[in-house]
């Protein structure tokens, strides 16, 4: 005798609804799933709540069109989709609530270290020293690790086999990138006046 109540399988095809309503329902489900998740939701997970062969991209596009003018948006990051408030409301959110432990709160120097790792990974602390001309403290590395922005990569083939550091999925999410391919290239940096 089973005591586990069976969960009825989700009706994904929605055959009893007229096409218009079916589409709206699918849009609703996708938006709800993404809204409920703190990490980017991969395409495969979204495909499970809608009809066989229905285009996730078209549904997402329609949701994004609905969200124009709303203070939050649906964005593609790190191999999935995520909902987030629009950047221009950052000050309002900060003023209204104590969001200290959610905010990455990186200072300029930490961002610079993070950028160096992103471009030159896998990179050791010695490698960082070569770039910045001074030691990068273990504490700083520790903070970036604690925030899950970097992780340990392959050992470096140097005496003592020091750890290298590499960026994480969370790093991509935090900076709104789909992959490292979205890091500005040489030309992009020059345009921004950050490299010569």
């Amino acid at each position: 005798m089973s005591v586990v109540k069976e969960i009825p399988a989700l009706d994904t095809e929605l055959g009893d609804l007229p096409p218009e309503l079916r589409w709206r329902e699918w849009m609703g489900r996708i938006e709800a799933v993404i809204f409920a998740s703190v990490s980017p939701v991969p395409r495969g997970d979204l495909a499970r709540v809608i009809g066989q062969g229905v285009s996730v991209d078209l549904l997402i596009e329609d949701i994004q069109a609905d969200l124009v003018g709303r203070p939050y948006e649906l964005v593609a990051v790190a191999g999935g989709w995520l909902m987030r408030t629009r950047v221009r409301f950052a000050d309002a959110i900060r003023a209204a609530a104590n969001v200290g432990d959610q905010v990455l709160d990186l200072n300029e120097y930490e961002v610079a270290v993070l950028a160096a790792i992103a471009y030159h990974q896998p990179l050791t602390r010695d490698g960082l020293k070569d770039i910045f001309g001074k030691d990068i403290s273990r504490e700083l590395i520790g903070r970036l690790r604690a925030q899950d922005l970097i992780a340990t990569g392959p050992r470096s083939p140097k005496a003592g086999a020091p750890y290298t550091y590499v960026t994480t999925q969370k790093f991509l999410v935090a900076f709104g990138m789909e992959s490292l391919r979205d890091l500005p290239d040489g030309e992009g940096l020059q345009d921004a006046g950050l490299a010569s």
Partner: peptide, 10 residues
Amino acid sequence: LARVGDALGP
């Protein structure tokens, strides 16, 4: 040189 559990990097 990556050990089990290390990220491989790009």
